[in-house]
Write a protein that binds this DNA or RNA. Structure first.
Lengths: 163, 163
DNA sequence: GATCTGTAATTAACATGTTAAATAAATTCA
DNA sequence: TGAATTTATTTAACATGTTAATTACAGATC
């Protein structure tokens, strides 16, 4: 997505390409971010799958583990999940006894969510495996470069976020 | 996602947090990539919506515009869409007369996909708007930093991809 | 040339992503 | 106070994401 296309009709000639990608797409930030995310997540997904959990569920459970009880909006925000998705996910997670839900007595609109002891056990199983994978990635890529990359990602995020 | 969780039960204390995020999550690469992508895409999505097209459809059309006719596997690969998603998307895009589809006469298993003149017109409308948004982003973030970020994203992608 | 194996695409089933509309509770303010 | 407005959540409808199974064809082997 999201770079100028040249006016050529019928695709680019090979000499305009590098690394097998046309120049328009090769250095597109949105695509580079998507590619990187896919690549990184491919290291973690099989491990999560072995624990019968998906990426989004892991984010939700983790955030509740880290913050404690949260209302739905705050949780959706932190777990980077949209509210309607969260509503559905909570139903599933309640059925599998990983999340509990109660009404806020002060503000009746709010749903307060927290994790069960079973979910804490799950976190305790997954966390070390996750840390291991992360560490291997950090070793291969370089801890220093990782820090730099995280800094730049934070920077580009805030450039886009506020305006 | 994907950093070690400390053994504290019931969430972190405020003094362990920075920028409103618990330390476990604050510097997680998968989450940073997701956040960055969401932030960047939020700049482009409204423009694409005005053209009645979503992010994935734009990637598919763009790739066909850049490469010319492709079989479904090659297209799915380049557009970063899974094959089953692509199958469904092509049906929609055929109905809206943006993509055409034919069988490969040499290898009967392959579906060869290309875009219509109508899609080329759409590309010609979207491309300059996209370039404009991209340029503004580059100006705000810094062209040099953008290059560095793209380099690092490429690097982390290849570290994960091959092994 | 019939079977066996591998590959491309599709289908199926269930998950989340996305936008808009509906619901319900809180807040504002005339 | 009570109507109007705002806010939190849910529902609805349709999109893609994801994995597994299926279908259809190609290529290899005997």
């Amino acid at each position: 997505m999201i770079l100028a296309l040249d006016p050529l009709i019928g695709g680019n000639h090979p000499e305009l390409e590098t690394k097998g990608l046309p120049r328009q797409t090769r250095r597109s930030l949105p695509i580079a971010l998507l590619r990187a995310r896919e690549a990184v997540m491919s290291e973690f997904r099989p491990m999560l799958a072995r624990h019968d959990i998906n990426e989004q569920q892991w984010r939700v459970i983790r955030m509740l583990g880290e913050y404690g009880e949260l209302d739905a909006s705050a949780l959706a925000d932190r777990a980077l999940v949209l509210a309607p998705s969260l509503t559905r996910m909570i139903k599933t997670l309640e059925k599998s006894k990983l999340v509990t839900r109660r009404k806020d007595k002060i503000d009746g609109r709010r749903a307060l969510l927290s994790i069960t002891p079973k979910a804490r056990e799950l976190i305790n199983e997954i966390a070390p495996e996750s840390a291991q994978i992360y560490k291997e990635l950090e070793d291969k890529f370089g801890a220093r470069k990782m820090e730099q990359l995280l800094d730049m990602l934070e920077a580009v995020t805030s450039v886009c976020a506020d305006e």
